[in-house]
Design a protein around this nucleic acid. Structure first.
Lengths: 184, 184
DNA sequence: GCTCAAGGCTAATGAAATTAGCTTTGAGCG
DNA sequence: CGCTCAAAGCTAATTTCATTAGCCTTGAGC
C-alpha cells in the first residue's frame, strides 16, 4: 500500500490502556496519546474517528480481559468455582482500578457489539447454574455479579469509609450469597 | 452588603442538578449553567471555584437525598424494612439515572466531609443489624448495599443485555440476600 | 450623600478536540 | 526502472470550554 505506519489500532488501544491505568481517563488527551506513540494528534484520526472511539475500544478490550480472567478462574461448575470467580473479578477490578469503572459508566458500547462482548463474560457465570431453569439461572448470575460489581465499585471509589475489615466484608457477602443461591 | 445577587449557591446547585438530570453531566458547561441562571459564565466563579466544585456540591446533595429517602423507607428494624430500603434505593437510582452514577465515580468528595454525608446513608442500614456484633453488622450492611448499588449501576448502564426479567432478578437477589443475612 | 465590597460583565487566555488541506513514501504495476 | 496513488504523517486553522484579569454597578450601613 503506502506510507510506513508508525503505529496500529491495536497499539493505540494498548498505549491508551497503559495511559489510563497510570494516570486516569482524564489524562488521555489525543495529543498526549499521540505523543506516546511518536506521532502527532491529527494522525490518530487516520485510525480512529475520535477520542470516544478510542475509549470505546479500550472498554471492549477490558471487557474481553475480564471475561477471559473469569473463564480462567472457573474450573468445575461448583460453588468453589463460583467463589473463585468472585475473587478473580474483584482482583481484576482492583488491579485495573482506573479502567474498570469505564465498563459500566454511561457506556459508549451499544447494541449488538456490546451484547457480544458482555455476554461472553456473563455466560461463564450463567453456565454454573445449568441445573436451574434458564430464567432462574439468569437471576442467580445477575445477583452474584451485581454484588461483586457493586462491592468493588464502591471499594475503588473509596466508598467504604466506616472502617471495619473490608476484606472480611467481601468474603462474608460473597460466601453468604453463594450459599443462599445454591439452595434457593 | 452590596450588589443584588441574582442567584445563590443553593440555586446554582439546584439548577445544575436539573440540567444534569435532563441532559447528562457533559451538558453541564459553565456557560450553559450560567445562562439558565440568567447570568454570564464568569459570574459563577463568584460563587464556586469552578465546575468541579459545583459538581461536588451536586454529589453532596444527591447523597443527602438518597440518605433521606433510605431513612424514610425504614420504619421498623425488621426484614421487611430492609427489603423496602432496597426498593427505595433502586427507585431513587433509576429516577436519577444521570445523577446516581456520580455518587461512586472517582468521587470528588474527600475525607471528612465525604465520610459524614455517606455515613448518614450507611448508618440507617447498619442500625437494622444492631443485634449483631458491630463488625458483622457492617459486613451485612455492606453486602446488601453492594448488591443494590451494583444492580442498579448495571441496570442504568443498560448492562443487562441477555433478556430475562430484570425486575424479578432484582427481587430474587434482594430477597435471597436478605433472608441469608438475617440468619447468618 | 459616601463608600466599599459583593456580584455582574466584557475581553483575553489556554487547553483540547477536531477539521482542512498538503506532503511523503513505498507497494505494485507497466 | 520509473510511475502512481492511497495510506499515514504533518502543520495550521477552528471551535468549544474553562478559567482569569480587570473593570463597573449598586445598595447597606455609616
Amino acid at each position: 500500500m503506502a506510507y510506513p505506519s508508525k503505529t496500529s489500532s491495536d497499539k493505540i488501544v494498548s498505549v491508551a490502556i497503559d495511559l489510563i491505568q497510570r494516570e486516569g481517563e482524564e489524562a488521555l488527551t489525543v495529543a498526549r496519546l499521540a505523543a506516546e506513540l511518536g506521532i502527532k494528534a491529527p494522525s490518530l484520526y487516520k485510525h480512529f474517528s475520535g477520542r470516544d472511539a478510542i475509549i470505546e475500544q479500550v472498554e471492549r478490550r477490558i471487557f474481553a480481559m475480564l471475561g477471559e480472567a473469569l473463564r480462567g478462574s472457573i474450573q468445575s461448575d461448583s460453588a468453589s468455582s463460583l467463589y473463585s470467580a468472585c475473587i478473580t473479578h474483584r482482583k481484576f477490578a482492583k488491579e485495573h482500578a482506573r479502567l474498570y469503572p469505564l465498563l459500566f459508566s454511561q457506556s459508549r458500547l451499544d447494541g449488538n457489539e456490546a451484547l457480544d462482548i458482555r455476554a461472553q463474560s456473563a455466560r461463564a457465570i450463567i453456565e454454573l447454574f445449568k441445573n436451574d431453569r434458564p430464567n432462574v439461572a439468569l437471576s442467580k448470575a445477575r445477583t452474584i455479579t451485581a454484588y461483586v460489581h457493586g462491592f468493588v465499585t464502591i471499594e475503588i471509589a473509596d466508598g467504604f469509609q466506616l472502617g471495619g475489615d473490608v476484606e472480611s466484608a467481601f468474603e462474608y457477602g460473597a460466601k453468604t450469597i453463594i450459599q443462599a443461591i445454591l439452595k434457593n
